[in-house]
Design a protein around this nucleic acid. Structure first.
Lengths: 258, 258
DNA sequence: CGATGCTTTGACGAACTTCAACGCGGGTGG
DNA sequence: CCACCCGCGTTGAAGTTCGTCAAAGCATCG
């Protein structure tokens, strides 16, 4: 059992190399020279790890920095009137957060660490100043934001679809793809968020999520032991995702895997 | 009856002044001088109006331009495996589309005019070239993309909420706010999209949308005559939106109205 | 004028939520 | 070190909402 536990812990503590980080394209853009690189690296702050439950920022706070997850995971959410919260996204290693606040100059949601998490912080004012001299920085940020919009749109597709089965399948496939893209296992990972958070994010009751996990396991699709997930049939999982054309490109347009 | 029809037509044919257009901040950024402005205006193409049902672009096509709606309205959607489509968004006068394609260099969804619509087209390559000399252009685009991410996130909130009533209320309130922001009436407008499209976008059956409209009308919340909507109690509509904190700022953080 | 597509309405059934209870594991304090 | 407690996850039964099916009303267009 303790062996199993060790595995789980190591999976949850993914460290990410700079070259696999979303920020890499900003940190080390093609064509940047040594001196410029040095200046850019000076403004990026590598903050010490935050503990589970700590916040990176709260909704309503003034926007100062963009963050990139280096290891661990973060949940974005907004509080709702009745005292609950609505989860708007999860951020895995190599992913950015805070992009929705640039326009308002204020954070519209809160960001909370789901486990011990380390992040890079880019003070936006300094980034802007530097970008005046290095337009390539802006260009890279625009690319990353475009990808973000694309992925939000994909999530819209997910929620627009009706069945609970499709939603959970799409969710797991998304997590799997995102880990895979960063060089981690696509078939075995550790869900740092609670069933409650998953249900909230997918627009489903906790119990429904739980029942779906049970059913998926009964069908041999995957093994689940608390937060530890092993996907046995990734292809079938992708199929169950349903309406969304897959990554394989068998559809003549629209790759939507994330 | 024909008088009523005229009203409807005039509502659907909103013309938008450049200063109220989302693109205004790109077209006429603060601090740009006369010569620079002239160069920018040269690359922006004002295409002649497209007819109802015409496409601006199809999913899978190479990305060339960003578009801004000047008048009319546009629907974004992706085809699904079973031959249906999933609506991913509606674009009203003054709003941008195509931003999700910058990263992939390929359109991930199709865009179809819901009525006679005129758009501005900004060829992206030329925009990029010009931005090297005028960083303010990039900065403005980043702002607009940030807003887009924020709004997509808001839609996520909408779909995460369960009840059909809340969804349709939030949808109508969104449309109302967006018209209002552009200087049109917040309480009276014309829905250019079909009930089918609305249901698809909200993850509801057509019949459910129809029943909700009927119920809203019975409750005196609004009047609906086919596509023509008059909101009688905007405040109550906002309340029915439920979980999403309103624009009024009664909540200590998070303005989410769009 | 008929044809067609969009919208509305009703009846029914399925899927999901809600309510309630129980099991499990991790953390805390004795 | 153990027992207890509390949060989280699972399971079952009942209730509700919403989707599906079917049919009819109503605008638009040829």
């Amino acid at each position: 059992m303790s062996k199993n536990k060790d595995t789980v812990v190591s999976l949850s503590k993914h460290k990410i190399a700079c070259k696999d980080c979303s920020l890499f394209q900003i940190c080390l853009p093609v064509g940047i020279n040594g001196e410029e690189l040095e200046r850019l690296e000076q403004i990026i702050q590598r903050r010490r790890p935050v503990k589970r439950g700590d916040h990176l920022y709260h909704g309503g706070e003034p926007f100062r920095s963009i963050y990139a997850v280096r290891s661990g995971s973060v949940k974005s959410y907004v509080p709702t009137k009745n005292g609950n919260e609505q989860v708007t996204g999860f951020h895995l290693p190599g992913e950015l957060l805070g992009l929705d606040a640039i326009n308002n100059k204020m954070h519209s949601c809160s960001a909370k660490a789901l486990e011990t998490t380390s992040v890079c912080e880019i003070p936006y004012d300094e980034f802007e100043l530097l970008s005046n001299e290095l337009p390539v920085l802006h260009r890279q940020l625009i690319m990353l934001m475009s990808k973000e919009i694309f992925e939000e749109e994909t999530h819209t597709l997910l929620l627009g679809k009706k069945s609970a089965e499709e939603r959970l399948a799409a969710y797991l496939f998304s997590i799997s793809s995102r880990y895979h893209r960063r060089g981690f296992s696509a078939s075995e990972f550790y869900l740092s968020m609670s069933r409650n958070d998953i249900g909230n994010y997918l627009g489903l009751a906790v119990e429904t999520v739980s029942r779906m996990f049970t059913r998926f396991q009964e069908e041999g699709l995957l093994s689940v032991e608390r937060k530890h997930i092993v996907i046995h049939d990734l292809e079938r999982l992708k199929m169950m995702t349903g309406a969304v054309p897959g990554k394989g490109g068998e559809q003549f347009f629209c790759l939507r895997s994330s």
